[in-house]
Computed example of a mutant assay.
Amino acid sequence: MLAFTLKRLLLLLPVFFVVSLVVFLIIHLVPGDPIDNLLRPGASPAQRLQIAAKYGLDRGLAEQYFVWMGRLLTGDLGTSIVQGRPVSALIAQNLPYSLQLGAAALLFSALVGIVAGVVAASFQGTRLDDGITGVILLGSTVPSFFLGLLLILVFAVWLGWVPISGARGWSSLILPVLATGLGGIALVARVTRIAMVETARQDFVMLLHAKGLSPLVIQLRHVLRHAMVPVVTILSLRIGWILGGTVTVEYVFARPGLGSLLIRALNQRDYPLVQGCLLMLAMAVILGTLMGDVVQAAMDPRQREARS
């Protein structure tokens, strides 16, 4: 198992370099630059050149990338051009809010999604199964930012049950968690249902029925345990996608976090800050994938042998 984990870690190194290159090129190919936010009206071209030289923006893209990469390998994400603070400090200040929202949304989508999938699989072919499947399909098609706006309108504006925005107290987490996690519920429930239906057709399940075990015991103790392998993989992938999904949700609910920081940096064309935020989100997806592979291999040795 240790050799498998080390091998997967080594495979992430080229992925990391490719991701860093893509992140760097994306922000530098977008029209505009951060100098426009630093210059006063009527500034001369000489002042523009002076600021560009100060932040290394007068160099070629290749040279800028290698300079940034060299600093990155030493743990230095650079300094925000507009705010004048280290990027690592800004990320460390905002990341806990995103992790709090992401962890709550992941737990919410996992628990509700697995329960919905188990119920749908247990009552396969009934109206209850059709109703859950319909809700799952509806939940997977509604964008999180649009859902967030609807939740604000109903529960914050009309009913006044929860705060509209901010991050003060646990009540301010309710609507963002719902907006972020409902899409995950649909995905987890669909995977759980399919995996349980396929597992229920295996020969060992027929043998358990022949032994006289209760259908409920068979479903919960045996079928669900075997069906959890693809579910765990999906949940691991959701770690990165939920952090990415909080970008729009945080902006809609005016919450501090990595998403709000990224959108503000994009509007200001703050290259180092945008690169740092995007790299953090990309690494979350990569580490989530790694975690999914390791957990799946630990649960099913056949997967470990197939990928060795």
Score class of each variant (00 low, 15 high):
120 A>T: 01
171 S>C: 06
18 V>C: 10
96 P>G: 09
127 R>A: 12
197 V>D: 01
43 A>Q: 08
110 A>L: 05
245 G>T: 03
111 L>S: 13
84 G>T: 07
154 V>S: 14
147 L>E: 01
177 V>G: 01
135 V>F: 14
41 P>F: 10
38 L>K: 07
94 N>D: 12
218 I>M: 08
302 R>D: 11
192 T>Y: 04
184 G>Q: 00
46 A>S: 12
91 I>D: 05
143 P>I: 08
59 R>L: 14
181 G>H: 02
186 A>Q: 03
30 V>S: 15
234 I>S: 04
287 L>G: 06
45 P>K: 15
71 R>L: 11
11 L>H: 10
53 A>Y: 08
145 F>V: 01
227 A>H: 06
295 V>G: 00
53 A>N: 13
190 R>V: 04
105 A>H: 02
108 F>P: 01
245 G>I: 01
285 V>N: 03
119 V>W: 05
228 M>H: 00
170 W>R: 05
62 A>H: 10
59 R>N: 12
194 I>W: 09
23 V>E: 06
262 L>A: 10
41 P>R: 11
149 L>E: 02
75 G>V: 09
96 P>L: 14
146 F>Q: 03
202 Q>N: 11
252 V>Q: 02
215 P>H: 14
171 S>T: 15
145 F>D: 00
239 I>Y: 04
125 G>D: 10
230 P>I: 12
47 Q>E: 15
288 G>M: 07
250 E>V: 05
92 A>V: 11
141 T>F: 10
27 I>F: 14
162 V>F: 15
187 L>R: 02
278 L>E: 04
177 V>A: 02
1 M>E: 07
143 P>D: 04
248 T>D: 05
101 L>S: 00
217 V>T: 14
31 P>M: 13
215 P>D: 14
162 V>E: 10
39 L>Y: 06
150 L>N: 05
269 R>W: 01
38 L>F: 12
33 D>G: 11
285 V>H: 01
23 V>N: 07
98 S>V: 11
10 L>R: 13
231 V>N: 01
305 E>I: 13
261 L>G: 01
53 A>P: 06
274 V>G: 00
254 A>W: 08
185 I>C: 01
58 D>A: 11
155 F>E: 03
24 F>W: 12
16 F>M: 12
288 G>P: 00
291 M>T: 15
247 V>K: 01
181 G>M: 02
31 P>R: 12
122 S>V: 10
18 V>Q: 09
165 S>P: 03
173 L>R: 02
211 K>A: 09
29 L>Q: 12
238 R>D: 06
200 A>H: 02
209 H>G: 07
265 A>H: 00
89 A>K: 09
204 F>A: 05
275 Q>E: 15
182 L>F: 06
